[in-house]
Write a protein that binds this DNA or RNA. Structure first.
Lengths: 228, 228, 228, 228
DNA sequence: CATGAATGAGGTTTCATTCAT
DNA sequence: TATGAATGAAACCTCATTCAT
């Protein structure tokens, strides 16, 4: 785990005048634009400021350093996704696994796909060391939300909910990432929602089966067999 | 899609003597170590050379530039994984879905987990623009291998094999990444193999079912329902 | 001798209202405080204004630029000291050397020590190029005052009054600086007055002796010997 | 006392090749030159490098940051002076006060005056916060050397040697500074040695007198009287 | 008068890469 | 071949100063 100095990643000050708020918004949007057209390694504070129609100095009025700017952009993105997932999960409490999955995945994929460019480009930002904690914390919260939902499923119970939720969230995030980040063909992007639902539902149904039906001899679980 | 200059990413020359091979190995290992302790943004050629017990000059004897070194390290890693997957897939031709999945996932997870640190740290390298093509090409090959295997499954057929393989590969890579990259607790790392098998098998079983059993009204597939 | 642009170092306008005077006082005090806590290199106009409970704009209402503010603060300090010295010197005309010295030093040390923090911190400001002329001019005036006083000494005469006064002033300022600037222990600060008197009186007594008693062979004076 | 981060002020690496040593020397000399012609506030790393006929990068090979460079220059200067004082003091052990003073001051003034430009310009560097500790430490050592010498004086004893030495050192450094820093007329520079001797000898003779001859009533010592 | 947002020149520092030894 | 000193473009960030509100 790489060592590095902890930076305060908070914005430097809140804009008080209307003009200032406009500037901050422009910086935000410019950051995504630059990420999109130049990529993270060529994102410089000057370039962002220029794209926003502002000067570097202005950028630094609101963000103490480059990382804080990127952090803020990532944070907003993750908040949106997190919020979508939270609402979907809340609305699916006390329903069947199938409903839960279809509701959840639909919301998640819609949120991620809504601004496909932003999503694809922020994976690079998320990989930066400084974002690690934010990512982890977001993961924790999402898993809590999923666990709370799954516990109310009308047609399923899980022995090891923690692990199941961990894998479920991982599969959702991971598969989506695979599709979004690499710039997969539109066909695959369109197919994502249904197939992700299939992936998740297939998994959950398997894990919801009573443990007794599975061979559980030896250390860890054995490779599972299809019911013959 | 970000623009970027094309660099020749091939090593400058092949090491012919034993000493040279040792140097190259040391550079490889040093790269991983620096990535681990300092992170990609603080990986400098001098630091890598020092860690390898060599000088910058020597590094540049073998690689025309930094990117080439990183590229080579990533390539070796991907080759290993790819080779493991290829062999597993070949060995599972003409078997059941369950066998295929358990064989494949076991090999894939073992390969990824073998050097957990290397795997976790190379995701950052893979995110670099220059690696995109390598990643894509590796993905294509892996999918071809998987498709060839799945076509010989004794107990399943797939309407849209391309899409299924795309999602299968995505789920494998994505879920593994989620677990490996963020430094998940050991418990989850240990659980990965079985649950990834469950994820994949659950998905493939669902997709292998005859289309007629699913409601397919409208454009795209509808949210799927569990068989009541 | 370093070259530098000439700036108008005068305040921009004289405060006429009570409120304005309060602002100026606050700016003065804030300058000292910032100097104390952050040091000259980190003294910024915004920081000073904030400490003073004002805005940068307001600061620039009273001073055309940062140098002018610092200049003004230094000037006020030097005026105080100069005034104290002038009054003490005037009051000691036509007295003995010993009285002159004790009166003078007492006043000087008291003035410097009164606001020890201010004094200690302004040495840094005084070192700035722009202050050089102010320092020199202040030095000239002080020496004139001292010379005028010494000429009326009832018990001493000096061959080379210019030089003696130059050295006397230098010793006073220099020794005081050594004690004040480096943050000497309180014991030394307390001892300063008496010992500075001793230094000055010892020197003046020596220089007041008739030249004939000293060996003055060669260019310049020879190393002096104690009367055996 | 201003707060600020502690920086490692050590040079970054020792030059190993002859060429490198030449570069370091050039950087050293260039620093003084720039200080002389542009002043501390306009001393930039680029300017120093240019003047040295090198590039900024080279400068940063040997000094981790600007402060370290300035620190090194100041340190060398102080070492020279310190060494001169130490030798002079050592050579004057077990002699009379007068011999001690004349030996010491002669060496001190010669060392300071030898490179008058360097000395005058380094006062500004010494004022920087980062140099404070170096200054203090140098002061401590000098005082120890002076105390050791004075204790062996054949014709004098001191009640409070600590204080006397503190003031003696302060007077030496302070008066010299007053003369050197402000760019005093050559006449005064030439007169410095003799008059500084007079100042110091006058002071020490006074302080060496038996305490009983001084009025010591009340808090602290009273203003001293010339022996009538 | 006061405010504080905006500016942008300029300073510091890093690091990939070259090349004389 | 190996070394490591030197280069300099380019990035980050600061802060004195202006000016619309």
């Amino acid at each position: 785990m790489p060592a590095h100095r902890k930076l305060a990643l908070k914005p430097r000050k809140q804009p008080r005048q209307a003009r200032a708020q406009a500037t901050v918004d422009a910086l935000f949007e410019a950051t995504i634009q630059v990420l999109l057209t130049d990529g993270l390694p060529r994102l410089t504070t000057i370039r962002v400021a220029e794209r926003a129609g502002a000067s570097v100095g202005t950028l630094y009025q609101y963000y103490p350093h480059k990382q804080a700017l990127l952090f803020a952009v990532l944070q907003r993105h993750l908040s949106r996704i997190g919020e979508a997932v939270r609402q979907a999960a809340a609305s699916a409490h006390h329903t069947s696994l199938a409903t839960m999955v279809s509701t959840l995945i639909a919301a998640f994929v819609r949120a991620k796909t809504e601004r496909l460019d932003e999503a694809s480009v922020l994976y690079a930002v998320a990989a930066e060391l400084d974002s690690r904690e934010l990512i982890r914390e977001t993961g924790r919260r999402t898993r809590a939300v999923l666990a709370a939902m799954l516990e109310t499923a009308t047609d399923a119970k899980f022995d090891d909910l923690d692990t199941v939720v961990f894998m479920l969230a991982g599969a959702m995030a991971g598969l989506t990432r695979s599709v979004v980040e690499t710039g997969a063909p539109p066909k695959m992007v369109r197919a994502l929602r249904d197939h992700l639902q299939s992936v998740c539902l297939g998994y959950l149904e398997r894990e919801a089966r009573p443990r007794s039906l599975k061979s559980t001899v030896g250390k860890g679980r054995q490779p599972q067999q299809i019911s013959s």
